[in-house]
Simulated assay, not measured.
Amino acid sequence: MASNDHDERGFFGEQPMLPVKRDTVREKPHYLGHRDRLRERFSAAGDALADYELLELLLFRLIPRSDTKPVAKALLARFGTLAEILGAPVNLLQEVKGIGPAVALDLKIIAASAKRMARGEISGREVLSSWNQVLDYCRAAMAFEAREQFRILFLDKKNVLIADEVQQTGTVDHTPVYPREVIKRALELSATALILVHNHPSGDPTPSRADIDMTKTIVDVAKPLGISVHDHIIIGKKGYASMKGLLLI
């Protein structure tokens, strides 16, 4: 059985308990008062707290028996923002001192939960009237992926989401997209409209010439079949680009 000696969270449940001397006075760790104060601030201010404070609150639960402030500072120094920390791959998280496999996995579980919540905001709704929620979901799902992904939101005749699928995953700067496969899948789902989405791991969401040409091809193939392409959204770390907004489709 694997040893728990190196569990960075501080849970040593399998360790034998040492006898406690009755005359020993244990001082509370210095960070406990800080934790109580930060929890009180969150109760009063909610999500108005800064990234590093929210991150500390998360780490309180994940690393309950250590001072988490240095770990929070190290994570932010490495990745920049809370969103980028949650979007970082497990292997890179573990390069930060104080983050081992257990906490790295816990952070990814939190990230997956956030994505699921964002997706819930658009499920079963008329998507075009929930456009900000669509953008929030796409950013949560794709902005910090290390490789390009091509995602399709399939909509019915009322523009309600039928399916959300990643059709292709490529390299750091290219994803192969096959218009024939896009339309084939739309017909299988009886979709009457599409929103195309892909990410640029470079961070710059500006459409490339290849992006524009591929989108026009899909629009041209879909139109005779009664399938509309509402938009092609490109997601970057710092923002997004809408081809419809740029008058490119």
Rank of each mutant, 00 (worst) to 15 (best):
residue 218 I to E: 08
residue 120 G to C: 12
residue 18 L to G: 02
residue 145 E to F: 10
residue 229 V to H: 09
residue 49 L to T: 05
residue 169 T to W: 02
residue 117 M to N: 08
residue 205 P to R: 07
residue 25 V to Q: 15
residue 144 F to A: 00
residue 102 A to S: 08
residue 93 L to Y: 04
residue 110 I to S: 03
residue 161 L to V: 13
residue 49 L to M: 04
residue 107 L to Q: 06
residue 147 R to C: 10
residue 94 Q to Y: 01
residue 63 I to H: 02
residue 75 L to A: 13
residue 116 R to G: 09
residue 45 A to C: 12
residue 109 I to G: 00
residue 11 F to Q: 04
residue 202 S to P: 01
residue 141 A to R: 12
residue 168 Q to W: 07
residue 224 P to I: 07
residue 76 L to P: 01
residue 60 F to I: 11
residue 181 E to W: 01
residue 108 K to I: 01
residue 70 P to V: 06
residue 184 K to D: 01
residue 53 E to N: 11
residue 39 R to N: 08
residue 151 R to N: 10
residue 179 P to A: 08
residue 81 T to E: 06
residue 21 K to N: 13
residue 199 N to L: 03
residue 52 Y to W: 10
residue 34 H to A: 15
residue 226 G to R: 10
residue 244 K to M: 08
residue 97 K to M: 06
residue 51 D to R: 08
residue 178 Y to V: 11
residue 120 G to E: 07
residue 91 N to I: 12
residue 105 L to P: 00
residue 19 P to Q: 09
residue 125 R to E: 12
residue 94 Q to I: 04
residue 63 I to G: 10
residue 21 K to R: 15
residue 173 D to E: 14
residue 147 R to T: 15
residue 69 K to H: 02
residue 162 I to Q: 10
residue 166 V to L: 05
residue 61 R to M: 03
residue 46 G to Q: 13
residue 129 S to D: 07
residue 144 F to L: 05
residue 190 S to Y: 04
residue 108 K to E: 12
residue 130 S to T: 06
residue 35 R to F: 03
residue 173 D to S: 13
residue 123 S to T: 14
residue 129 S to V: 08
residue 128 L to I: 05
residue 59 L to K: 11
residue 34 H to N: 11
residue 145 E to K: 09
residue 55 L to D: 02
residue 58 L to I: 05
residue 172 V to C: 06
residue 60 F to N: 02
residue 77 A to N: 06
residue 147 R to H: 14
residue 225 L to D: 07
residue 217 T to K: 13
residue 203 G to W: 00
residue 182 V to H: 03
residue 25 V to Y: 12
residue 20 V to D: 13
residue 150 F to V: 00
residue 110 I to Y: 07
residue 86 L to N: 03
residue 126 E to N: 09
residue 88 A to I: 08
residue 242 S to T: 11
residue 61 R to A: 11
residue 122 I to P: 08
residue 147 R to D: 06
residue 193 A to E: 07
residue 47 D to S: 13
residue 134 V to E: 02
residue 211 D to Q: 07
residue 102 A to R: 11
residue 85 I to T: 10
residue 159 N to H: 10
residue 226 G to D: 06
residue 186 A to Q: 06
residue 167 Q to Y: 12
residue 204 D to W: 08
residue 175 T to R: 09
residue 30 H to T: 00
residue 184 K to T: 11
residue 215 T to C: 06
residue 31 Y to H: 15
residue 123 S to N: 05
residue 66 S to M: 10
residue 45 A to G: 04
residue 102 A to T: 14
residue 217 T to S: 08
residue 6 H to F: 14
residue 223 K to S: 12
residue 7 D to L: 11
residue 192 T to V: 01
residue 10 G to D: 02
residue 139 R to N: 04
residue 232 H to P: 03
residue 217 T to G: 00
residue 192 T to Q: 00
residue 6 H to W: 13
residue 222 A to Q: 14
residue 227 I to H: 05
residue 94 Q to C: 09
residue 238 K to C: 03
residue 31 Y to Q: 00
